[in-house]
Design a protein around this nucleic acid. Structure first.
Lengths: 231, 231
DNA sequence: TAGATTGTTAATCGATTAACAATC
DNA sequence: TAGATTGTTAATCGATTAACAATC
């Protein structure tokens, strides 16, 4: 049991627990129960306890979790105990926004360089960083020990950029380009394609049951009104 | 069987199928098998067939799916057959980037207004839109029939903005603020908290097995090196 | 008709939820 | 000690995968 593979769903919840613990520590709340964490996070208390138990026994029966202690543990689990250097590939609207956003707001991550192929963007200042030409990518990955990178360029250029950064040692990519990136075993990609998110929301924004029902049964009024009353 | 509730995971895959079909139609590819769709999307052929089968029988046994036909069907299923009007709350870095991005790139969605509370941002031009004061939100929601909205403001202001837009009829929210929004039944929220995405990636960016193992077993070298060989 | 590929049912897998003994 | 809450095992639920009959 020491090292079963911990599922992606568990890992995705850890930063949410951390965010809540950050706030609690700041507000000088010393202890928190899984029940209360449930209220804050929207996950069930059982799920929270189980998630944490994958990594150790961090609580105290009868009284809950010490916020500062649990926070430290989660920071170590995720690997945020030293600042992570990242680079942003693409200095367009999104790349610029993300660079500014992370530089100012995130205590755990540092954007140390921004790159673009477009000569017009080179040397443009974003926060305190000058946009660099794509040729510098390998050099910077090496010198700054980059393991994580954000890809904010158009789909047609994204695979090439991916191959380049992976070749030079990047292990994790946050991909904003609308394309499925191919990466070798051991390299992780999270897709943050905002178009996909937005479109799947649109599904829920109107009376979907009615729409789908109509699609399946044609204009048959009986059928569609019947199913519309369900759920 | 007419209207079982279709799971969120299925709905999230639909826009990805659509994106691939958009490309195929553009490239004049007429037919595609679930096997080929699998190659393009990274999902299994079985899953793709099953996903589509929730909504109807769109393929032809022996030859696969007609790309243009399937594309039209998926557009109807998601509800993209008429352009969806959306608004962006928050004209900071991210709100600005998303407004520009959607205005230019997305054929299915239209950002029709951007709002901010900051007087310094009011009237700032983003693409061809002038940033409007938050007071105008109800008016615009009503006049443009807004059902979907993007929230790009700091966490402390996000719940208030949510309550306001929901009160005036918004049914789906893409939330970029690092907070769990409370919404009434029937309103859908997708969280696109980029910090969370980035942090969970960091977990995978280093030799996580080793790290976790050390955390659980202390500095016991035997244990940690043993488990490190696994996986 | 033979080969290919869908649509659908059954089997498996994994994740969530429930239950409860351990223990502060 | 009694009450509370964890950590963990067992039960349930849902989603994915496998298998295959239907059919182009």
């Amino acid at each position: 049991m020491p090292d079963q593979n911990i599922s992606k769903s568990v890992i995705k919840r850890l930063p949410i627990y951390l965010r809540i613990l950050d706030q609690l520590v700041r507000r000088d709340v010393e202890m928190i129960s899984s029940k209360e964490l449930s209220n804050e996070s929207g996950f069930t208390a059982e799920q929270i306890r189980k998630d944490l138990a994958y990594f150790g026994a961090f609580g105290t029966r009868g009284s809950g979790y010490n916020t500062a202690f649990l926070r430290e543990k989660i920071i170590k689990i995720i690997g945020l105990d030293s600042k992570t250097n990242t680079i942003v590939i693409g200095a367009g609207n999104l790349g610029t926004a993300l660079t500014r956003y992370n530089l100012t707001k995130n205590p755990y991550v540092d954007v140390v360089a921004v790159f673009d192929k477009d000569p017009n963007l080179i040397s443009k200042e974003i926060h305190h960083l000058k946009v660099q030409p794509a040729e510098n990518i390998p050099k910077i990955i090496k010198s700054k020990g980059i393991k994580v990178c954000l890809i904010c360029i158009p789909a047609y250029a994204a695979q090439e950029a991916t191959d380049l950064v992976v070749e030079h040692g990047v292990k994790a990519i946050l991909n904003f380009a609308p394309i499925k990136l191919s990466v070798p075993e051991g390299v992780h990609v999270h897709n943050a394609d905002l178009t996909i998110e937005l479109q799947s929301l649109i599904y829920y924004s109107s009376a979907e049951e009615e729409r789908i029902s109509r699609l399946k049964h044609g204009k048959n009024e009986d059928e569609s009104s019947k199913s519309f009353t369900r759920e």
